[in-house]
Write a protein that binds this DNA or RNA. Structure first.
Lengths: 192, 192
DNA sequence: GGATTTAAACCGACCGGACGGTACAGTTGT
DNA sequence: ACAACTGTACCGTCCGGTCGGTTTAAATCC
C-alpha cells in the first residue's frame, strides 16, 4: 500500500524514476526554499506549490524527513550525473567536476544546494550521504595531485562559491566573478 | 515594560551589554543548533538549555525573530571585535581578519556561524546585516590588492572553510588542514 | 466484450501535539 | 515600595501525520 519512495535515510539514488509527481514535489520544495527560506518548507506549502493535496505529497514521501532525504538524493545524483558527463581521462577531473556542478547550478538558478541547507536545518544526519560522497571525492582529489594544499584551497573556494550563491552573499560583481572562475580553471589545470 | 534588546531587524550591534541573561540565551540557541540543527531552535528548547523559563527568554527577546536577529548581531559584533584586534597597518588586514575569525570560531568550537544557517532557514532577510558587512569588507579587500582574483579566491576559500566546519564536512585530515591554513596565510601576505 | 475486481494515485477532513506569543501573578534586589 | 525580572497557565494557530474515501486505469473473469 505504500509507494515508490522508501523514505528511509539510506535510500538509493533514483528519485525521478516516475518522472512526474515526485520530481514536481521536489521542485516545489526547492522553489519554496529559494523564495522564502528552508524553514518554510511545510508539507502543505509544498503541496500547494506542486498543485497537489497534502495527501498527494505524503503519498509520494511518507514523512517530511523522506522528502528532505529525497531532496538530498536528487542533488547528489544530479551531481554525479554532471561528473560522469565530463571527459573521463582528465587528470583532476573530480575537481573540475565539482566546479562545473557549482557553475551549472548557478547558471540554471535551479538551486539544488538548497537541499544542503534544508537538511542541515532539520536534521544534521541527513547530510551523511553528502559527507560520504565528499569524502570519496576529496580522497581522489588529494591523491590525484602532488600539491594537495592548492587542490584543497580550490575545493574550499568552490564550496565558498556554492554557499555565496546560495545565501546571496556579495560576490564582487559579475566581471570579478568571471575572472575568478577562469582563474580557478587554470589552477585546476596546473594541478597536473 | 519591554527590555533591553530591541528585536527590530535593524538593531544595533551591542548584544552582550547586560552580560548575563541575553548572552546565555544566545549561547543556548547556538548549542541547540550545533547539537540538533537550526530547525530545533524553539523558545522552549532555548529556555530549557539556558535554565530559564519561556517567559524569561521572551522578556529578553520579545519575538523569535528578535532572538535570531540577536544571534546574527552577536556574530557580526564578534567578527568586528576580532578584526579590530589585528595590527592596524597590515596591508590586507581585512582579509586576514576574515581568516582569523574563522580559525578562532573553529578553535573554540563556539560556532557563531550557526547564526547564518539559523537566519537563512527562518527568513533570508535576516542575512541583510551580514550582506552589508560583507559588501564593505569585500570592497576594501578588492581595492587593497592588485590581484583581485587571487584575493577573491582566498575569500571564497575562507567561506568554504567556515561552512565545511559548520556542516562537519570532510576536510582531508588535520595535517592537510594545517598546511592549507598556512598556505592561505602566505597567499594573503603575497597579495601586497 | 461488458461487468467486476484490483491496485495505484490522490484527496481532504481530522487529530494530537508543539509552537509563538500573551497575561498575569509571583519573586528578588535595592 | 518599586522596578526589574522570572515563572506559568493559557490561547490560537499551524504542522506532521493518519485515515477513510474517491478517481482512474489496467487486469481479470465469464
Amino acid at each position: 500500500m505504500q509507494a515508490k519512495v522508501s523514505g528511509d535515510v539510506k535510500a538509493s539514488g533514483q528519485t525521478g524514476v516516475s518522472g512526474n509527481a515526485s520530481a514536481r514535489i521536489l521542485e516545489a520544495a526547492r522553489a519554496i526554499a529559494t523564495r522564502e527560506g528552508v524553514g518554510k518548507i511545510t508539507i502543505q506549502a509544498v503541496a500547494r506549490e506542486a498543485r497537489l493535496s497534502k495527501g498527494g505529497v505524503l503519498y509520494n514521501f511518507p514523512t517530511k524527513q523522506a522528502l528532505l532525504c529525497g531532496l538530498m538524493d536528487q542533488m547528489l545524483s544530479e551531481h554525479r550525473k554532471i561528473m560522469t558527463r565530463l571527459p573521463e581521462q582528465h587528470p583532476v577531473r573530480t575537481l573540475r567536476g565539482h566546479l562545473e556542478t557549482v557553475l551549472q547550478s548557478q547558471d540554471t538558478c535551479d538551486d539544488l544546494s538548497m537541499a544542503i541547507l534544508a537538511a542541515a536545518a532539520s536534521d544534521p544526519r541527513l547530510l551523511d550521504p553528502l559527507r560520504a560522497d565528499l569524502t570519496g571525492d576529496l580522497e581522489r582529489i588529494l591523491t590525484d595531485t602532488r600539491d594537495a594544499e592548492a587542490a584543497m584551497i580550490v575545493v574550499l573556494a568552490i564550496q565558498g562559491l556554492r554557499f555565496q550563491r546560495l545565501l546571496d552573499l556579495p560576490d564582487g560583481g559579475a566581471d570579478v566573478k568571471k575572472r575568478v572562475i577562469a582563474r580557478l580553471r587554470t589552477m585546476i589545470d596546473e594541478l597536473e
